[in-house]
Design a protein around this nucleic acid. Structure first.
Length: 644
RNA sequence: GCCGAUGUAGCUCAGUUGGCAGAGCAGCUGAUUUGUAAUCAGCCGGUCGGGGGUUCGAGUCCCUCCAUCGGCUCCA
């Protein structure tokens, strides 16, 4: 007998060699039906894997991420099986589960798979699932495995196999389809009740753009049709929150083919909104001891050779502008740091001045690949809420923590709850991508890790994601469709101060090198506004939204009174508009609701006689009648609550 | 940049085997004077993404470029 410890710490005895499924059955039939995989001693395994020694066991169902992952991974196999039947000769790359579903990368040879063919694959999958096919695990030797896939002429699997260690290789078979796979998998296909193949995309084999591009098919499965329907509805609703759509509807920004792709045009309402965001941060920065600076939009190529950016990105930038006579070369500013370094150098500095914090809403231009451009989140011209902090080495950690505070304050004010704090470190195996000494990298990475830890941030470490001059702490936030975007960023840099030979005079009367922090709490105004749009579905907080109040007179008879209220609100710095059309009130309310204006003021005979206003809150309805003064203090109170 | 898809009025979308470019909303004008999510009528609005080709004739077929969308790659 062996002892099995369940999640609630109860210990039960089972015969040696019992499977997780046996144990599930012994607990309840219902559990046995819904269990998808098992976590035995923190390893997720097949339900049919025998357990031979005392273990902890967690039975994984659809409610566990690992349970979902197992089902989706198995679904990827079934999709591959369906494709192998429908498209003989198709070769298979990799087919993992992902956050929402699964994909498989497939080489269809000369055949170009179209969206129209997906239902046929889906139907085949449904057919296979109905057969209640089992997932049969088999351990194979490396030589046999390679021979099998060589025979099938599947060079992708052969390539994968050649990198695996012998004695560690397993196949999984469903029906006639055999796949190289570590597992785990479902016992059989019966939990898969609803299937949807979502889209087709190209993907480079092994993620390397020098390799062949395979066809990637994304799909998702659920244990209930209802859950699939709900998921598809969610995707539809996400489209309504797309910032590109909302930005157009709300007249915040636009693009023009004539101006050029990736070059956003801020419309009046968007420009004002952005200004409010900038002023919000300016106020915070002023309090935190930042000083504004301004630098030009172009800089001599020599500047970027000094910083190292030219060597690293010169080829992929907008190419230098050359002067007609002297032949000097200037680049469109792709980042602000080199300029700020030169501002620092404009005069000698004492240790008593440090930290020096230069801040600039700096517009930069980067030649992003055309396929990468995406609304306001990835553009070729954008404005960073940039700052560079120059400090003594011993001040670094406190400064870094101060910046974390600013980022968190902004996220809290704008209600970003689901962010990931990502520590991006250098890839120690590929140092060619980076500049600077090992010692400085070590110090910089240590500083970030410690500061994040001391601030109690839950962080995720990504190796190889650092900037070429230093490691960073990035705040990642998801858009409506779940795609992750970097907003705030804080970076430690020992390298640029060296390259620019920055100095300060220490208390010992000797020259010392400052450490530099690059930081942008919003990231860029463009991307931040985009993500904020998607999070709020265009219903910005009151302090930020373009129009706070709209006045709706019941009929033209009350236009004069409405105009009077408008003037009073204007004088109180409330952003107010007025709907003087000769439409019925219901129509005016509908339009104001759709325009996402937070408050409507409705005035007619009653209000004019009583010198009051009727207030309606967007999305909620009638709030009753009050005086103009009461309304103004109500609004101001709401705003100060949001900004505290 | 790569793979695939898409591009018709400001927006959402029709447009038959190639045969006179349409609707709703928005906008403008007028009527109406309205009480908490759509009043009625009329009018305006198009190089069918650009260019080239096939054809008696192209929104429709072919080529090419551009832009957009979904991914991949990249992201200072």
């Amino acid at each position: 007998m062996i002892n099995i410890t369940l999640p609630d710490n109860t210990v039960k005895q089972y015969p040696k060699g019992s499977t997780s499924l046996d144990i599930a059955k012994s607990i309840s039939e219902g559990l046995a039906r819904s269990v998808l995989a098992a976590k035995v001693n923190s390893e997720v395994v097949d339900l049919l894997r025998p357990i031979n020694s005392d273990s902890t066991l967690q039975l994984l169902t659809w409610n566990d991420d690992e349970g979902k992952a197992t089902m989706w991974h198995s679904s990827a196999h079934i999709m591959a099986e369906a494709i192998a039947e429908l498209f003989p000769g198709a070769k298979f790359g990799i087919g993992p589960d992902i956050e929402n579903g699964f994909y498989y990368d497939i080489d269809f040879g000369d055949h170009v798979l179209t969206q129209e063919e997906l239902p046929a694959i889906e139907n085949k999958m449904k057919e296979l699932v109905k057969q209640k096919q089992t997932f049969n695990r088999k351990e194979v030797s490396k030589a046999d495995a390679i021979a099998y896939f060589k025979d099938k002429q599947d060079e992708y699997k052969v390539e994968l196999l050649e990198e695996l260690e012998d004695g560690n290789i397993t196949f999984y078979q469903t029906g006639n389809f055999v796949d190289l796979c570590r597992g785990p998998h479902l016992v059989d296909t019966s939990p898969i009740k609803a299937i949807k193949l979502l889209n087709i995309a190209g993907a480079y084999w092994r993620g390397d753009e020098n390799n062949k591009m395979l066809t990637r098919i994304y799909g998702i499965t659920f244990p209930k049709q209802k859950e699939l329907d709900e998921y598809l509805k969610l995707l539809e609703e996400a489209k309504l929150r797309d910032h590109r759509r909302l930005g157009k509807e709300m007249e915040l920004f636009a693009f023009s083919q004539k101006v050029g792709q990736g070059l956003p045009l801020w419309l009046p309402k968007g420009a004002e909104l952005r200004e409010r965001l900038e002023n919000f941060l300016r106020k915070i920065q002023k309090k935190a001891g930042y000083q504004p600076v301004i630098s030009p939009h172009i800089g001599n190529v020599e500047l970027y050779k000094t910083s190292g950016h030219f060597q690293k990105y010169g080829k992929d930038s907008f190419q230098p502008i050359t002067t007609p006579i002297e032949g000097e070369a200037f680049m469109l500013k792709p980042m602000n740091c080199p300029h700020h370094c030169e501002i620092y150098k404009a005069k000698p500095h004492s240790y008593k001045e440090l930290p020096i914090r230069y801040a600039e809403f700096g517009t930069v231009y980067r030649y992003e690949q055309s396929g990468e451009l995406h609304g306001l989140t990835r553009v070729r011209g954008f404005t960073q809420d940039d700052s560079h902090i120059f400090c003594q080495p011993e001040q670094l950690k406190d400064e870094f923590k101060g910046v974390i505070d600013i980022v968190l304050h902004i996220f809290k004010t704008l209600d970003f709850k689901n962010y990931t704090a990502q520590i991006s470190l250098r890839d120690p195996d590929d140092k060619t991508k980076y500049i600077g000494s090992d010692e400085n990298w070590q110090k910089a990475e240590q500083a970030i890790i410690e500061a994040a830890e001391e601030k109690g941030l839950k962080t995720k470490v990504e190796v190889g994601e650092a900037a070429f001059y230093g490691p960073k702490l990035d705040f990642m936030v998801k858009d409506a469709l779940g795609r992750s975007w970097q907003l705030g960023t804080i970076q430690v840099d020992y390298n640029l101060p060296e390259r620019f030979e920055l100095e300060y005079i220490g208390s010992d009367n000797q020259k010392h090198r400052p450490v530099m922090i690059h930081r942008a709490p919003f990231g860029s105004m463009e991307r931040f506004v985009a993500i904020l749009l998607e999070h709020t579905a265009g219903k910005f907080p009151l302090w930020l939204t373009p129009t706070q109040v709209i006045i709706l007179p019941i009929s033209e008879k009350y236009n004069d009174y409405a105009n009077m209220i408008e003037n009073e609100l204007n004088e109180q710095n409330i952003r107010v508009s007025i709907d003087l059309r000769s439409e019925k009130t219901g129509k005016k309310i509908r339009d104001a609701e759709l325009a996402k204006i937070p408050f409507m003021i409705i005035v007619g005979e009653k209000e004019e006689n009583e010198k009051t206003v009727s207030v309606r809150k967007q999305g909620e309805g009638d709030m009753g009648t009050m005086s103009v003064n009461e309304f103004v203090s109500f609004i101001n109170n709401e705003i100060s609550k949001q900004l505290e």
